[in-house]
Simulated assay, not measured.
Amino acid sequence: MTEPHATLRTMHPLMKFALELGPLVVFFIANGRAGIYVATAAFMVATLVALAAMWIIARKIAVMPLVSAGVVLVFGTLTLWLQDDHFIKMKPTMVNGLFALALLGGLYFKKPLLPYVLGDVFTLTEEGWRRLTIRWGVFFLAMAVLNEIVWRSVSTDTWVTFKTFGYLPLTLVFAMAQVPLMTRHAAEAAPKAGE
């Protein structure tokens, strides 16, 4: 008899990283060669290809890439249809703003959402989840504000470079800075049925 979890597939972290970074690299290269509108179309296609690959490999798509892809498609379509690059430049503001609102709003309504996103990976105390949620909510809010400052004050090419090579390092550094908090508030995993 097969275990019910045998059909679940896991994705190697490097593969996940490559699939999340891939569309940004496509965006950067296409912008350098053909401009922001071609880059936007290429970004939309690469995002859909990355989602399809995530589904094929793991048979599931995480919430954050799914929401981000939805916003890419909406704002990318507006950019191309109206021939106005302001929309694609506002996309990171919207995504980060949505994540901040969801996390901080969930806390306000006593329904923290971060455990649903990361609960399979980490086991934290209630206080640990609360603090981590506040930190990530504020981080996403800060990233939304940062995007607004950057795209409104630099050239399109500089903004594309920042979006491609600035966001990810900032996010990785921030995530690593949360390790001490997560270590302090680690909780024992609940035993699985039959153990």
Rank of each mutant, 00 (worst) to 15 (best):
T2S: 12
E3N: 10
H5D: 12
T7Y: 12
L8H: 09
L8W: 05
R9S: 07
M11T: 11
H12W: 00
P13V: 00
L14K: 02
M15C: 03
M15G: 04
F17S: 11
A18F: 11
V25K: 06
I29T: 09
N31S: 15
N31H: 15
N31G: 11
G35Y: 10
I36G: 07
Y37V: 04
V38T: 14
V38I: 13
V38E: 11
A41R: 10
F43S: 06
V45E: 07
T47Q: 01
L48G: 13
A50G: 00
L51H: 08
L51E: 09
I56V: 12
I57P: 00
A58D: 03
I61R: 05
I61Y: 05
A62P: 02
A62S: 07
V63C: 00
M64A: 13
P65F: 05
V67Y: 00
A69L: 02
A69P: 04
G70M: 09
G70P: 03
V71F: 06
L73S: 00
F75A: 01
G76W: 08
T77D: 02
L80V: 05
Q83H: 15
D85F: 09
D85G: 00
F87I: 03
F87S: 04
F87L: 05
F87H: 10
I88S: 05
I88A: 03
K91Q: 15
G97P: 10
F99E: 04
F99P: 02
A100R: 06
A102H: 04
L103T: 10
Y108D: 04
P112H: 01
P112N: 06
L113H: 08
L114E: 06
Y116E: 09
G119L: 10
D120M: 04
D120K: 14
V121A: 11
V121N: 03
L124D: 03
T125I: 08
G128R: 01
R131D: 06
L132S: 07
T133K: 00
R135L: 15
W136T: 12
G137S: 08
V138P: 00
F139E: 07
F139S: 05
L141C: 08
A142L: 14
A142R: 02
V145N: 02
V145P: 04
L146Y: 01
I149V: 15
V150T: 08
W151M: 10
V154L: 06
T158M: 14
W159M: 11
W159F: 15
L168M: 14
L168Y: 12
P169M: 04
L170T: 12
L170E: 07
T171V: 13
T171P: 02
T171Q: 00
L172F: 14
F174V: 13
A175E: 02
M176S: 09
M176F: 13
Q178Y: 02
V179Y: 06
M182Y: 07
M182R: 13
M182A: 14
H185L: 10
A186R: 11
A187E: 12
A187V: 11
E188V: 14
A189G: 12
A190E: 15
A190R: 14
G194N: 10
